[in-house]
Computed example of a mutant assay.
Amino acid sequence: MHSQIVHLDNNATTRPVPEVVTAIIRTLETDWANPSSAHGFGQNAARTVASSREQVARLLGVQAEQVVFTSGATEANEAVLRHHANLCATLITSTAEHPAVAGYYFQHTPQLVRTVALEKSGRWRLDALETVLSSISGPKLIAFAWANGETGVLQDLVAIKAMAERYDAACLVDASQAVGRVAFEADSAVYLTFSGHKLHGPKGVGVLVQPETLPPVEISVGGGQERGWRGGTLNVPGIVGLGVACELRKRDLNRAITDMARLRDRFENQVMSAIPNARVNGADAQRVPNTSNLTVQGVDGMALVARLEARGILCSQVSACSSGQPEPSRTLLAMGLSRDDAYASLRIAVAVDTRDDDIELAAQAFVDEALFLRAMMGDLV
């Protein structure tokens, strides 16, 4: 392994920032009591949780009472999906969604699933969505990732929500790849979820925002914690770490967005100018500022990822949850790429701790290794 590591796999996870690590350690040392306990030590921990809830709410633009702490977006999504499956609601999603966004339905009630095709840009076809919505009677749930984890393409949240309202459908929005990367305030009419480790917080903690205009979702039955919506002793250190991460990003959101976009664009420009026929997938759509998915035809993407790792550059081909499967990206296939082109694609994702010299080093390594692999493959055919 190379001695210098450049982490450009930040859509899989981000490195916890020092302030988060310090806050977690301090909480483990001083606020280790159960926040549900009535004694003073427990109530100190409860106040710490309440403060963290406020920090999360401020970043999202919601009321603190809407924020339910979970183990991550997957648990939160599953609860919303299960709730609506129990209502026999039809799920409307796309074939490109991460399994965490719609997997419960596909596994348990596939007969209630309707899918919407993508445009070549990676966005949902809104005409197809309306066709599906208009053909369904009874309860409906639209579920999608606001920002695609592989391409960074942002779905048209405003248009999808307006269509959902017109056809009386609920909306589940997984914002894991969007929170802290897009300036927004959560809509009071959608279920919104995200995971802390995508935002330089700790793993094992996330959020479900309960919409003000829809019935609240019960995540798990237990001891009545989280207003009875999610039972179980609260993960106070994780919650504190998530709160600090949200507070830091709220304080510096515009600069973070600008810096990530500059670094991402610099990487793309260097690669595109040096590699003939390289392509940025989703470039025609609005994207989160940190993500780039590139196709280099004639190159084995897995081999390119491996050769970059040998030079200390960490990136990926598909989402981390499915990266062990030797299958092409479902997202790229849904965007119209061939299987060969999907195999020849990979993702880089910068973060607020990515530096200019990281991008310089990574772009040069990417160009070197991609051109080497393309020449080698050309010699073999």
Rank of each mutant, 00 (worst) to 15 (best):
L91F: 05
D9K: 10
N148I: 11
R181G: 00
V305I: 15
R279D: 12
L263Q: 15
S195T: 13
L242Y: 00
Q210H: 02
L380T: 08
V153I: 06
G223A: 14
V318K: 13
A342T: 00
E97G: 03
G378V: 11
S94Y: 14
R355C: 13
L371Y: 11
G138K: 04
G201V: 06
D259F: 05
V173Y: 01
T109R: 12
V209W: 04
V288G: 01
H2M: 12
V288I: 12
D156L: 10
D187V: 00
N281L: 12
Q111P: 00
C246D: 02
T30I: 13
A320D: 03
S37D: 08
M260S: 13
G180F: 07
T14N: 09
T90Q: 06
G180I: 11
G312Y: 15
V80E: 04
L129Q: 01
P289C: 06
R82S: 15
G232T: 15
L361C: 07
P216I: 04
A278S: 09
G232C: 08
D187P: 00
V80C: 09
C171G: 00
E165D: 13
A245N: 01
C171F: 05
R125D: 08
N34D: 10
H39K: 08
S52E: 05
K203T: 14
L308W: 05
Q155C: 03
T14F: 05
I257Q: 04
Q4T: 10
S345K: 09
T13W: 09
